[in-house]
Structure formats: C-alpha cells, structure tokens
Write a protein that binds this DNA or RNA. Structure first.
Length: 484
RNA sequence: GGCGCUAUCGUCUAACGGUUAGGACGGAGCCCUCUCAAGGCUUAAAUACGGGUUCGAUUCCCGUUAGCGCUACCA
C-alpha cells in the first residue's frame, strides 16, 4: 500500500476527576485533526493511577464525551494493557537504558508537611549509588525481594541534547543533563504515566500526539523512551496552550469548583455544537475572522499552525459560571441550526421539566420557530417558554400593569370572543381582528398588543404579540383572554 | 531554586518588517420597532518594560518583569 501513512491520534484522559473544559478542547482538536486527515481517533483511558482513579470520574468522562457527540473510532484502557507496559519497560532495562533504584520512596514535594517553606527545592537528578549498581548486585537484591523502581538511565556528562519539533511551539531542545532519571515502573510493578503512555502510543501506532502544553517538558522524556523502545520513529508532537481561569491559574476542581466541568455547560442548556465551536476559538483561530462555524467548516479550517502559543483565559465568576462569548455563540447557534436539529434537544429539555409530553412534532417545531430568535439557551424553552406548553406559569407584576390599563381587560375579553368565532387563527387573521377591534373602539392598538402578550404569557417581553398567539395555541390563547 | 514555554483592547483573537494596529464578545450611544431580542450604524478600549538589528519594528535578537508548566514510585 502506497501513499501517506494513516494518521492515528488519541485522546487519553485519566479518570481522576470529571472531564474538564481543557480536556474537552484537547479531545475536540484531536478529533478535528483526525477527521481532516481521514485518520483514526482513539479514546484511551489512562488509568494507571489506581489510587486516584474512580468509577464516577470515568463515568463523567463518558458523559461529557457523549454529550459532545463527536465519537471515536477505537477505544482502549491502559489497565488492560499492563503486561505490554511491563514487557517494554524490561526491554529497556535489558538494553541497560534503565536501572533498578532501591531507594525507599519519599513523600511528594507538594506535601505541605514535607515541603519546608524556607528550604528551596534542589533540582534532583538521581539517587546516589543506584545508577552504578552492577547487574549482578541489582539482580541479587531484586531476587531477595527488595522493592525498587525502574528508572531511565538518562545520558549524563556527554553533552547530549534532546530535540524534537513541536507542531505548535516549533523546534524544542533540552540538555539531557537537565533531565532527571525518571521512573518507568513503580515499586508496585505498575507502569508510570510516562512508560504506559509511550508504550501504548508506540504499540497503537499513534502518529500524532496532540495534548496540553503541560506535557511540553515531559516530551523530552518521551523522546528518550521512544528512542529506547526502538520501534520506529517517534510520533509527531503538538502541544496546545492551556485554558486558564480568570485569576490566571490552571483550571482545577479544587480551586475553581464545578465551573471547569463540561457538564456545567450541558446543564446550562448549551447546544453541544455551540460549545464545541466556543472551545475551538480558545487557543485556535481560522485567521479569517470567522467565528460561528459548522462542524464541517471547523474540520476544513483546522490546522496546527492556526493554534496559538499563549494560554487562553476562560471567563467565569461565582455568580455566573458561563463565559459571555459562549453564551453569545449558543444564542447564535440556536437561531441558525435547523428546526429538525433543534427539536429533539428542546423536547428533551421540556421533558426534563415535565412539559409538552403530548406536544405534536409539527406544533413543537412551529413554537420553537417563534421562540428561538430571542432565547439564549435550551433552558429558556422551559423557563420563559413555559407559557406555551403549560398553564402554570408565573405572571410578572409588569404584565399585570399592562392589563390594568383602562379598558384593556374588557377589550381583551371581547377579542377572545371574536377569535373564537374566527376559523383561521393565523398571525395575519389575529392581527386583523385585533387592529379592527382597536379601530372600532377608538383605542390605540398598543393597548391590545401589549395586553395580549401580558395576558397570554404573563410577560411584557417576548416575540411579536401576533406570533405569541400561534406559539401559545388557539385553545390556550382564547381561554386566557376570556378569564383575563 | 533549576529547566522549559508565553506576553496585542477587560476577554477571545488578526496583522508571517511598512496597516489610521483589524474582527468578535462584553460596555456605551443611535436607528429600526407592538415589547424584548435580533439586525444595522457609531463609539470607548491594546502592542508589558528597556536595549539593540533595520531606512522602518506588534513582528527579528538580547535583557528585565510578569504569568504558566515541568522538576513525584500523579497524569
């Protein structure tokens, strides 16, 4: 088979928290890249940290991904591939590119108890005495059951420079002397992230690694591992700028709460595509001022060279967790997607509020058509739109005022009677009846127009008063006018 | 501390040495109008700082500052 090799990319979340915004964007960029190049999108669950993995976060990752609705082509779990990781780690050991380190584990430097505030951290390279251990000595201690971690033997004192070309950040270089002897296998025998990740990337034939910039410095280690594996050329790397909070810090559940979860946007009534569109505009630009784009347009426009190098702030506050631009994009999308696409989502939203279970599809679509031009989220259909699907809706004080205008109630009741006798009940016919009545009685049409909206919806703001009649429906409209 | 990365309006971004530094969100104002949105128009708002290189720097180089990341038997 000739031609360029099939592109294979992966999204590799670890189930140690819910799917957060930055991860979602990484997934999307990988997906876009795969689709653009007719490649394969792989979902790989990086669950090698048995202490921190939870089923709940695994579930929330699937929930978030399923909501986005982009899908994937292949699926793996690292916990099912541990034999491969170990085998490849020992292959590196056999090449003498790794060694056993019998030094007992020490606490994490993040541990506030251990990390003395006044003792600046030294750059650590390796534990004394372990690199030089003879193979015989090493084997003997291992056979005796002494615990050890397997560490990569980073080349030292030979002036070696590790290099790779990043698809976003350009040529990267780092002195091997600045890289510590990182672990491949823990004393439990389980692989570390670095080992498992590279082993799988090599085994799964990943051609392009697109991930967060927090891995940029790790990549030098990965280059070393791929080199030691000796299984062909390393994948190409591309790192994405991070999404950060308004305070400039990396998004974290602990510090910023649930606003960093994609489910916040789902639950706020976002359309999946609008959210995808929003995320795409963070750290990437099509360079032509386009913002609202369809899925296909995003695929066509996506390039690594369009990716930025500086972190992007996502706006949220305690009072309002939603980025204003995301909200704008959602309202735009709400107005432009086809009704056929929108209807199922609206029906779902209404169902969740116990509404419109019996609503015929044609009527639902007609109502959506009228309402959507001034809504921002799906939730609005069950909120401000409730009066179109139920009779128990709140009536605003300002709406009462509109009805308290002299003659308003009496005229509305009369209008109700006339509409009842009108077989048409279209926007045009309602307008004709309403204006006719107003002229007849010598009042301004506005009294009936604003009164209608108030009587029919309990609100003073909303669609054209005539359209409101259609949205509310003949039966409900006449009933509401009668008892006004 | 060491190493790496980054730096354009409040925010997201455009300008691959020459522009009145452009667009979008949000803000302000006007128009439209049966209300509210939408839409149209207008407006305020940015090249972190200091040195170079160059006829000319947002753009290239160096330094400073700031931010972020890595520096775990986390990922």
């Amino acid at each position: 088979m000739e031609g360029p090799p099939m592109m294979r990319v992966r999204f590799a979340p670890s189930p140690t928290g819910y799917l957060h915004i930055g991860s979602a964007r990484t997934f999307i960029f990988n997906w876009l890249f795969a689709r653009k190049h007719h490649g394969t999108m792989i979902l790989r669950i990086d669950d090698t940290d048995v202490d921190r993995n939870t089923d709940a976060s695994l579930q929330s990752i699937y929930d978030g991904l399923n909501w986005l609705g982009l899908g994937w082509d292949e699926h793996y779990r690292q916990s099912e591939r541990l034999d491969l990781h170990k085998r490849l780690a020992y292959a590196i050991f056999e090449k003498d590119l790794a060694y056993r380190d019998f030094t007992p584990a020490h606490a994490s430097p993040d541990d506030p108890v251990e990390a003395g505030a006044d003792t600046p951290k030294q750059s650590w390279q390796f534990n004394p005495g372990m690199r030089e251990l003879s193979r015989e000595e090493s084997d003997r201690r291992a056979a005796a059951g002494e615990p050890f971690v397997l560490r990569y033997r980073v080349p030292r004192g030979v002036g070696r420079t590790i290099r790779f070309a990043d698809g976003v950040y350009g040529p990267q270089a780092k002195e091997a002397d600045d890289i510590e002897d990182f672990a491949l296998l823990r004393s439990s025998g389980l692989p570390t992230y670095h080992m498992a990740s590279c082993a799988d990337d090599a085994d799964l034939g990943i051609t392009n690694i697109i991930r967060g910039q927090d891995h940029l410095s790790n990549t030098f280690k990965h280059v070393l591992i791929f080199e030691a594996l000796g299984s062909g050329p390393a994948p190409e790397f591309a790192h994405l700028p991070l999404l950060i909070a308004p305070d400039g810090a990396k998004l974290s559940k602990r510090k910023h709460g649930p606003v960093v979860s994609v489910t916040t946007y789902r639950d706020a009534g976002f359309l999946p595509h609008a959210y995808i569109n929003f995320l795409c505009l963070l750290g990437w630009s099509p360079k032509n001022d386009r913002e609202q784009m369809t899925r296909q347009e995003l695929i066509d426009a996506f390039t690594l060279s369009g990716v930025n190098r500086s972190n992007a702030v996502i706006t949220f506050t305690d009072a309002d967790p939603i980025d204003p631009k995301a909200l704008w994009l959602n309202s735009q999308t709400l107005r432009t997607v086809t009704t056929a696409e929108l209807a199922p989502l609206v029906r779902q939203t209404l169902a969740a509020a116990g509404l419109a279970a019996q609503e015929p599809p044609e009527r639902l679509e007609q109502t959506i058509e009228i309402l959507r031009s001034r809504f921002a989220t799906l939730l609005d259909f069950a909120g401000r739109g409730r009066c179109c699907f139920a009779d128990d809706y709140p009536v605003a004080p300002e709406a009462e005022e509109k009805l308290n205008v002299p003659q308003a109630r009496e005229l509305l009741r009369e209008l109700g009677a006339r509409l009842e006798a009108d077989p048409d009940f279209t926007e045009a016919s309602v307008e004709k009846q309403l204006r006719g009545l107003a002229t007849e009685r010598g009042v301004k049409a506005g009294v009936l127009i604003n009164g209608s909206r108030a009587a029919l919806t309990g609100q003073t703001a909303g669609p054209s008063a005539f359209a409101v009649y259609i949205a509310v429906g003949r039966e409900r409209a006449i009933q509401r006018l009668k008892k006004v």
